[in-house]
Amino acid sequence: MKRAGLLTLLLAACAPDPLKVCADPNNLPFSNRAGEGFENKLAELIASDLDRPIAYTWWAQRRGFVRNTVGEGACDIWPGVAAGLETLETTRPYYRASYMFVTRQSDDLAGLTLDDPRLKRLSLGVQLVGDDGGNTPPAHALARRGIIGNVRGYMLYGDYTRPNPPAAIVDAVEKGEIDAGLVWGPLAGYFARRSKVPLRLEPVTPWLDDNQWPMAYDISVGVRKDDPQLRDDVDRVLKARKREIAKLLEDYGIEPIGPQATAP
């Protein structure tokens, strides 16, 4: 074998394994194939600090995402999971997000809560999950109060042939198709900043409805169950890069986790 070929083989053998990252290719503000999401940026920061190249496993974030990606060993981490998720090891939370009431600033709708009587006469939008119309916590909370007839569902994954399908519910508020949307916080913050119409964002409260439907979650990085060392390594990066991560989240309209945050 020629010396150059041998050197190439030796270098390849010594190269660190890539950090395989689970990500949705069309799900801003979280991730997309162009690397424009904040989870893309976070994954790049983690990989850099661990001195590992990054490699993506692209998979639409629908039901079965964990089972078909991290669960099958197709990737090492998923940058955005609820803290304490049983199917994965999870790191320290790096932000806390809440469902938000999204309304037009020109409308007199400040101060909405789940128990506000105005909800019964407003046109409302809620996000739904899955082809079976599985409900998000705000949808359950409204249904429990008998608020059904004036509620319109927006599939969280939407029309995947179009860019940023989860933005549809925020677009509907902007266009006046609904009076208020109950929207997952990172989506609300990111797309409200891009709205041509000034929008108002307020956390959905109470944060825990009927002692079973949380409206706010601590968000962590998910790691395979069989790799607690990687979880610890990622934890160290999250701690060391806390300021950079807070700035990253701020740039995307997401508030960083506060000291009083409590995992659901």
Rank of each mutant, 00 (worst) to 15 (best):
G5W: 02
L6V: 10
L6D: 03
L7S: 02
L11Y: 05
C14M: 10
P18A: 14
P18I: 05
C22A: 15
A23F: 02
N27K: 11
F30Y: 15
S31C: 06
A34E: 13
G35L: 06
G35Q: 10
G35M: 14
F38A: 12
L42H: 06
I46Q: 02
L50R: 12
D51V: 04
P53M: 12
P53D: 00
W59F: 03
A60P: 01
A60R: 11
Q61R: 11
R62M: 09
T69Y: 10
T69P: 04
G73F: 12
C75F: 06
D76L: 13
P79G: 11
V81C: 10
A82W: 03
A82Y: 06
A83D: 09
R92D: 13
R92I: 15
P93Q: 11
M100G: 05
T103N: 03
R104F: 06
S106L: 06
D115W: 01
D116P: 05
L119S: 03
K120T: 13
R121D: 14
L122V: 07
V129W: 10
G130W: 09
D132P: 01
G134H: 00
A139E: 09
A139F: 09
H140I: 00
L142I: 04
R152L: 04
Y154V: 05
Y154M: 13
D159Y: 06
D159C: 04
Y160Q: 14
Y160T: 15
T161G: 14
A172F: 06
V173Q: 00
E174V: 00
E174T: 15
K175M: 12
G176Y: 15
E177S: 07
D179F: 00
P186T: 10
P186H: 09
A192Q: 00
A192L: 01
R193D: 10
R193N: 10
V197L: 01
V197M: 02
L199D: 07
L199T: 12
D209V: 15
D210S: 12
N211A: 15
M215F: 05
D218L: 07
I219L: 14
V221C: 08
V223E: 07
V223G: 07
R224D: 07
R224Y: 02
R224W: 01
R231Y: 09
D235E: 04
R236A: 15
R236N: 05
V237Y: 09
A240R: 15
K247E: 13
E255N: 10
A263Q: 15
